[in-house]
């Protein structure tokens, strides 16, 4: 397999709120010869899109330009970062006036956006660049017995004409990847819905009720555990669920793991890199790393 090299776009939250996502991502990619390069990126731009369009596009464009300067495609494990970078790319491609102004500002530090690099989410890299056969071949201890509910995450999937991640109405990439680990992907009606995290600091009530609907649905569909591949979804289902819903008698806690943790577990990687114990809600049926 040819060596793959990506600029690793962690996003703002991983280093301090979800370290296990970084370590597990690095660990599962390493055996496949994927090299992750660390560059000093800034915020992807998502958090500011609510109030100021240009600063969202410029933030994203600067990241893209930094990677472009190094001629590296971007790999991000976060779906909000992924979506945001893709949206910005789309606006920059589509709108010449915007592109001109953004490039003018970028030029002040010797950067430029030319649209020469690709932005990829880790699931795509695993499924398409590395390929399912290689993933299957890497499994050491298949996770039989586990029913896993894949949570797709909004910003990777939609709007499909911009992100081109998978079929927006009937995606299958996540199920395919979960099957590879030996676990059983669960069919659940709300798998494509929002986790609620974008509203966490803006409207707690709605944020929690979106999450509650998903958790209930996953449990009713027979899932042992949720599986995410996004920083924010995981924070929502793990840390926030744990902090906010432990008092809620209507809900039995639904654990959530990162896909990289799940894959790492089936590849026989150690706890040290997977950080399962860092997750707030533990899944009893999950084998120990």
């Amino acid at each position: 397999m040819k060596a793959m090299k990506f600029a690793f776009f962690k996003g703002c939250k991983i280093p301090y709120y979800l370290e296990q996502y970084e370590t597990s991502t690095r660990a599962v990619l390493k055996p496949f010869g994927v090299r992750l390069v660390d560059l000093e990126f800034n915020c992807c731009g998502y958090p500011n899109r609510d109030i100021h369009f240009e600063s969202f596009v410029f933030s994203a464009a600067r990241n893209l330009a930094i990677a472009e300067k190094k001629r590296l495609d971007i790999l991000t494990p976060c779906k909000c970062c992924y979506g945001t970078l893709k949206y910005a790319q789309h606006f920059l491609k589509e709108n010449e006036h915007l592109r001109g102004d953004i490039n003018k500002e970028l030029a002040r530090e010797g950067l430029a956006w030319r649209g020469k690099i690709a932005v990829k989410h880790i699931l795509t890299v695993l499924c398409d660049d590395i390929g399912l056969p290689a993933i299957y071949a890497s499994i050491r201890s298949p996770l039989g017995n586990l029913s896993i509910a894949p949570h797709y995450g909004c910003h990777a999937l939609r709007p499909s004409d911009i992100v081109h991640f998978d079929d927006p109405l009937a995606p299958s990439i996540f199920e395919d990847l979960i099957s590879a680990t030996g676990a059983k992907p669960v069919e659940w009606p709300r798998r494509l819905d929002c986790c609620g995290n974008p509203l966490w600091v803006k409207n707690r009530g709605i944020s929690l009720s979106l999450m509650r609907a998903k958790i209930t649905d996953a449990a009713e569909s027979g899932a042992d555990c949720l599986c995410t591949a996004c920083t924010y979804c995981q924070i929502q289902f793990d840390a926030i669920q744990n902090a906010e819903m432990s008092e809620d008698s209507r809900i039995t806690p639904m654990p959530s793991v990162l896909y990289t943790q799940l894959l790492g577990l089936s590849m026989g990687l150690p706890e040290r890199v997977l950080g399962m114990k860092r997750n707030h809600i533990q899944c009893d049926k999950m084998p120990r790393a």
Binding site: R49, D50, C154, H155, P159, S160, P168, C194, P198, L199
Partner: peptide, 29 residues
């Protein structure tokens, strides 16, 4: 407008291809 979670469900599903979420973003801005 202010409680939109930016999930793009509306935009994805609109039969007329209207960029509903992006309109909401612009309204917010």
């Amino acid at each position: 407008v202010w409680d939109c979670t930016t999930c793009y469900q509306c935009q994805e599903h609109c039969p007329q291809g209207i960029r509903v979420t992006e309109i909401i973003y612009e309204l917010k801005n």
